[in-house]
Design a protein around this nucleic acid. Sequence first.
DNA 1: TCAATGTGCAA
DNA 2: TATTGCACATTGA
Length: 860
Amino acid sequence: MSFTLQDILEKGALLIDGSSFIYRAYYAIPGYLTTSKGFPTKAIFGITQMLLKILKEGNPKIIVWFMDEKGPTFRHLKYEEYKATRPGMPEDLKIQIPYIKKIVSALGIPLVSAEGYEADDLIATFIKTFDIPVLMIAPDKDLFSLISERVLAYDPIRENLIDLNTFQKKYGFSPQSFCHFRALTGDPSDNIKGVPGIGEKTAQTLIQTFHTLENLYENISRVTPLKLRESLLKYKEQVFQNFDLMKLRIDAPLPSQDLSYYYRKEPNYRELKRLFKELEFRKFLKEFSFPEEIPTFQTMEISPSELKELILRENPTTFALFPEKISTGLFNLKDITLLISFTPEKCYLTKFDSALWNTFTNKEVIVYDYKALLHLIERNLEDPFDVKLASYLLNPTLKNYEFSQLVFEHLDYTLNEKTSDKGLKGVSLLLLGRELKEKLTEEGLFHWLKKVEMPLSRVLYSMEKKGIKIDLEYVRNLIREYDQKIKEIENKLFDLVGTRFNPRSSQEVAKILFEKLKLPKIKKTQKSSQPSTDAEVLEELYDHHPIVPLILRYRTLYKFKSTYLEVFLREVSSIDKRLHTEFNQTGTATGRLSSQKPNLQNIPVKGEEGLAIRRAFIAEEGCYILSLDYSQIELRILAHFSGDENLISAFERDFDIHTHTACEVFGVSPDKVTSEMRRVAKVINFGIAYGMSPYGLSKELRIDPSSAEAYIKKYFSRYPKVKEYIEKTIEFAKAQGYVQTLSGRKRFIPELFSQTKSIRELGYRIAVNTPIQGSAADLMKAAMVALFSFLEREKLKSSILLQVHDELLLEVPENELERVISLAQEIMINPFSHLGLDLCLSVALKVNVSYGKSWADCKA
DNA sequence: TCAATGTGCAA
DNA sequence: TATTGCACATTGA
């Protein structure tokens, strides 16, 4: 009788020749595959893919992974030449083996090997020991001799199934004779020489006739032609030695004689997920159905007083605190339900209550989104642990930091967005807090979170709440003025063109400029093939037609009106007539803040129109708007990181850095630097921090690429350590897969390992820019926290209103002005020491100060 | 109503 | 073929 595949999977065993499998996976898959850190994973990936497929489609009850062991086998001991010509395993395959073993184990597949024996011998012994149907996953012929009515072979790469019938059809003899056959032909891959002059065809005929070697040599006189017979006799010893080597042993030591030992076990999902993450097998992370380890717990409604009693009794050290339901009751009083959990088995639902609030002092409180919580409860909550900020510090490039996303990322289960399970949210927050605290400590970032990011959330909360005063009357007048100017320009445009069109539509503008007026197309837009009409293009076409300057002017006016002035009126609070932005503390890849609704970090400043917009931001009666901005903070940080003596000394001596660079690049003394030379130097200085290319510089400066390259070369020869630093940073990033800022925050840069050159080069620029931009952000954050706590401690009335990356905007009562200026300046110059942080720069920082009745008045 | 696109503002 | 953001208006599904 014969077995079907189904029979085998249900009643029999699936045996894998792991060692040959690994070789096949390594050589059969073309190309390279590595993690972002460059660790080779091609073989691991191939094996995993195949195993997952086998497990999914076959769902075998018994599956065993057999492997060779490192040391010599009895074959090596007997015959020196055995496998002597086989080259050693390639290094990059060798280091993958431990991972393959880990994955096999994690999948619940028993792993069998024995010192001195090859995988083949173990498989033969297994088949001999257990009389069950077997499917051998065997990518080479070494196991063919084991094929029988109950044993099939399968080549997973060629997807080729060989059963007894197929075998006999192909070879014309039974599998038991296979080693006799191979002893005649030899096996070059194992350095086994066959009989010269005997190939597959001849050997096949001989074995078909005689079945065994013994029988062949007993009847050697019947072998013709004579030459063949002589050759066989001459190599008789060799042939029997070959047979001895090829014959599979059936006395290998199996780990157990009990079949149940070889049953497939439940996968170790946690380990498997960890491995997939480490190896960056995103495909498997997505495809493999990991069961969710959702905690089991009780949800209980409880009154605040009862809960307070319970807390006093049990005295837990850590709480998770999540606002669950907010409804607005009588007199607009907020009615808040809290989820509170201090053990993963329980979650309490209770009313927000100030008496309960006191029990949290001196406890560790875990929250999600501290700033939002402060807005909600409008009370102080000292020194909590925010899981949103924590996971941002661990990885600033996540798409979003929603609670369910964090649970999925760090706790590996899916949280239903619906509030169907309130308790689970509370318990999950507690577990997230534990998990993230551990990870953060490992990364050395726990201190930074507690000392800077958490307090900063409170600072931002107070800035958002305070808002900034807007001169509404002024804005309304300005809008009227702009409306009129816009209308005038529209009319002129329509007159000149001859038809009405929408000057805000780039499509229509392009039609008029490039089709109707036949102006030269300078460049194309990014995604469509429409010719671009952006400012850069229009500048170039400025003199080609009178409508070009008009369109530029129209764009500026319309932009300022729609994006700024009208938004101010729309967004200004009806309660305090001030503008309240929202700062996002987890919104950028570098660690900067961002601002939205409205964005107050991109208020125009250039030109008369820019200042006109800034004039709308005014100080309260009796107060001043005070602006403190870091001077050249990014270049100073570059000087610190690179240690370049020239750059450092330029800052130490408080030179104008652009003029200094102009001196270096153009080889002239400071008094000979023209404004044009300074402009060029400024572009170079900025470009360096962004990793600008010679081509980019040439485009920006409208010079030819070769002169741009000469400038850059000159720059690097004058600031040699800057060049060195850039190179070292890129090397580090490629080796480690990430870069770091002063605070120790990491940004991983997968772009570095892209197959696409342009994306890879983007990765280099990110690697250079992120430590600089990110460290500047670190400094500013520390300064804000230190300044805020100073203002609070000294009970000053001054408040921080805005942060614009390297600038702080304060509203300061006149009588505090002098004191606040000197202290704020002092704090910003040395922010880390004010927080007791053990960080310092090798370059002095400089802070420019200005103040006035409006933001527009804050200029040097 | 939504997403994609082009454009432009800031550091 | 210069980094990090946010937001507007248009366009077409």
